[in-house]
Each structure stands twice: as structure tokens, then as C-alpha cells.
Amino acid sequence: MAELNTEGFEFFGEDEQRFRMMLIERIEAYMVHNNMSKSALADKANIGKTAFYSKMDKQQGSQFTVSDLFRLGKVLDVSILQFFPVDEIDRIHGGQLAVPASVLSLMDEMMSMPNEDIELLHSLMQTLRKHQRIS
């Protein structure tokens, strides 16, 4: 049977320290987008400040729990999947966000729209592109 390249949520062979650093960088990007300090985020996520600072230290070995990630996602208003570098291109670039953090919430909103609205937006985008070529 041929091996399938899933490019999904599998992190086999990924260095744990590197993965932690990618996760921390993404959380930091959302903090910047939301104008939040570590202290404010820890308070709102109901995570102890000392524990949060330790987990955000790229050199230490403290790990975020699944519960921590859900709390952070709720406070930052993002899906916890957006914390992880799930595609190969993400991993090649060290987990850096492919787009600015401000675009990610917009993408989440658009992806949750009904199909009719997505089709309407696509039609509008095609019309705009068509008219830009004419001018």
C-alpha cells in the first residue's frame, strides 16, 4: 500500500523543543494582536502567572496542558488548532504564522459562514478581479 502524505495533525519526528517554541511563538503573536501582556492573558485564562511564565519560556521544559490551550483559545477567541503548525510549510518556517494574526480571526469567521455566503463572497471577489483587469 502506498504511503499517504497526510500533512495533517501528525508530528512524528518533530523535535519536542522546536515544537514548543513554535507553539509559544504563535501564542505570542495572538497576544500582540490582542494587545495583551503575559500577565493579563494569564489572569483572563485563569492560569497561575508563575506557571504561565514558565510555560512561555522557550528554554524551559514546562508544557501547556490541553486545558490551558482551551482556556487560551477562549480568551484569544481562536480555535486551538490555530496554535499548532499543522502543515509542512508551517514547520519549515519554524511555526511562524503564514498570515498576520489579525487575518486569522477573519479567516475563522469566514470559514464558519453558511455556504451561500461563502459563494457570494467568492462571486464578489471574482467580479472585483474582473473589473480591476479592465481598468
Results as ranks from 00 to 15, higher is better:
residue 92 I to W: 09
residue 47 I to E: 11
residue 71 R to Q: 15
residue 90 D to F: 08
residue 53 Y to T: 14
residue 102 S to M: 11
residue 73 G to D: 06
residue 103 V to T: 14
residue 65 T to H: 07
residue 132 Q to H: 15
residue 81 L to F: 02
residue 129 R to N: 14
residue 73 G to N: 13
residue 63 Q to C: 08
residue 133 R to V: 05
residue 67 S to R: 14
residue 83 F to N: 00
residue 116 E to K: 14
residue 96 Q to M: 02
residue 40 A to V: 08
residue 104 L to T: 09
residue 118 I to E: 11
residue 114 P to E: 15
residue 61 G to P: 00
residue 95 G to Q: 06
residue 47 I to V: 14
residue 39 S to W: 10
residue 114 P to K: 15
residue 65 T to P: 10
residue 103 V to F: 13
residue 116 E to I: 15
residue 115 N to G: 12
residue 48 G to L: 05
residue 75 V to Y: 07
residue 95 G to F: 00
residue 87 D to M: 13
residue 89 I to C: 04
residue 41 L to G: 01
residue 83 F to I: 01
residue 78 V to Q: 09
residue 85 P to M: 02
residue 55 K to P: 00
residue 55 K to H: 02
residue 52 F to I: 01
residue 129 R to V: 12
residue 61 G to W: 10
residue 115 N to D: 15
residue 43 D to R: 15
residue 51 A to M: 11
residue 51 A to D: 11
residue 124 L to F: 04
residue 58 K to C: 00
residue 101 A to H: 07
residue 75 V to H: 07
residue 37 S to I: 05
residue 94 G to F: 07
residue 89 I to E: 11
residue 108 D to F: 03
residue 66 V to W: 11
residue 105 S to N: 09
residue 37 S to D: 09
residue 51 A to S: 14
residue 81 L to D: 05
residue 71 R to V: 01
residue 91 R to E: 13
residue 133 R to K: 13
residue 39 S to C: 13
